[in-house]
């Protein structure tokens, strides 16, 4: 065992990159759930983003365009979910699961010609001498633009939800759609907008996987990241800041257990691989059993269908 082989700065830098896809997807899903909609199709939207981002990035050789296209494609898929659940009032849980089936199937068909190819990838932003700072260099000044974009988005989403009128309306719709409707807000339209936003962030997360994290396209490559994003939203009790903590904690635990293995720690590898899930449960129990339980409650209208002319 040689724990000194683990460099904390590199560990933190690695976990930031590793957590970015789930951070983006979880942040988007958090907004959707804040509007009172439960979309379990994050995995499907992520993988559509991954394949679209790759196809566009590969053909235009401009990764940024790939990200834009991924956001659009996944938002479009999310709107299919929105149409079904908001207009046709279908069950959200089942529709979300169906969305995942559609996303996985469609992405595999679209991506067939691109298997085994390499896409142009985003390079790190050049911060000059700042990147050479001890610890802070690799952690703060050694990343690609999307890592910073994801952090910026956390800030923006936090601010908008907490301090703006738009955020207030969004929360009102999520907490009590009947009251929001009575106040004259267009519940369905607001929810559709939130669903599209959530889809676009999931798409960005998927594109980050296919264009930066791995850069490649392989069928089924998200391998469950969307489900972890869903868990992080609940873990974060629907707060933007905690989504960041949750995503980094989760990504961090995975990275840490692999680092511990590589450093030769021999205590049951299999326990280490299930540790992230167990610790998530533990933390969840701790925060829900602590003080102020009410502040951790889910949006009151979460998952319930809204029907206008009741």
């Amino acid at each position: 065992m040689d724990l000194s082989a683990i460099d904390p700065a590199l560990l933190v830098a690695a976990l930031m990159v590793s957590a970015t896809p789930i951070l983006l997807a979880a942040l988007g899903e958090m907004v959707v759930e804040r509007a009172g909609v439960l979309n379990l199709g994050v995995e499907g939207m992520m993988i559509i983003g991954a394949v679209t981002g790759f196809i566009v990035g590969f053909n235009t050789e401009v990764p940024a365009l790939g990200f834009v296209a991924a956001a659009f494609a996944s938002a479009l898929l999310a709107l299919a979910f929105g149409l079904l659940t908001q207009v046709l009032l279908s069950n959200q849980v089942a529709t979300g699961l169906g969305l995942t089936l559609v996303g996985l199937g469609l992405s595999a068909l679209l991506g067939k010609p691109y298997e085994g190819m390499k896409a142009p990838t985003l390079s790190q932003i050049d911060f000059g001498p700042l990147s050479d700072l001890p610890f802070l260099g690799p952690v703060l000044f050694g990343h690609d633009p999307v890592v910073y974009l994801s952090l910026l988005l956390v800030l923006v989403v936090w601010y908008v939800i907490k301090h703006t009128r738009v955020g207030l309306i969004l929360r009102a719709v999520g907490e009590n759609h009947d009251a929001a409707h009575a106040l004259g807000y267009k519940v369905v339209r607001i929810r559709l907008a939130a669903i599209a936003f959530g889809g676009s962030l999931a798409g960005l997360g998927g594109a980050y996987l296919s264009l930066v994290r791995l850069p490649q396209w392989t069928e089924g490559m998200t391998a469950g990241a969307g489900w972890i994003a869903l868990a992080i939203v609940v873990f974060a009790s629907w707060r933007a800041g905690r989504v960041l903590i949750g995503a980094y904690l989760f990504g961090g635990l995975t990275v840490l257990q692999l680092n511990l293995q590589a450093a030769g720690v021999t205590i049951g590898v299999q326990y280490l691989s299930m540790a992230p899930y167990l610790i998530t449960i533990l933390v969840l129990v701790l925060i829900t059993s602590g003080k102020g339980r009410g502040s951790h409650a889910a949006p009151a209208s979460l998952g319930r269908a809204f029907q206008q002319s009741r």
Binding site: D7, L209, A223, G224, L258, S273
Partner: peptide, 26 residues
């Protein structure tokens, strides 16, 4: 240095495993 990922196919986890090794000088 051996890392067990307990999967045959999970690109992100495979990349994480490679990253952990590289960061430790492999």
């Amino acid at each position: 240095v051996v890392t067990w990922v307990y999967t045959w196919f999970d690109p992100a986890k495979e990349a994480d495993a490679a990253r952990a090794m590289l960061d430790q000088g492999v």
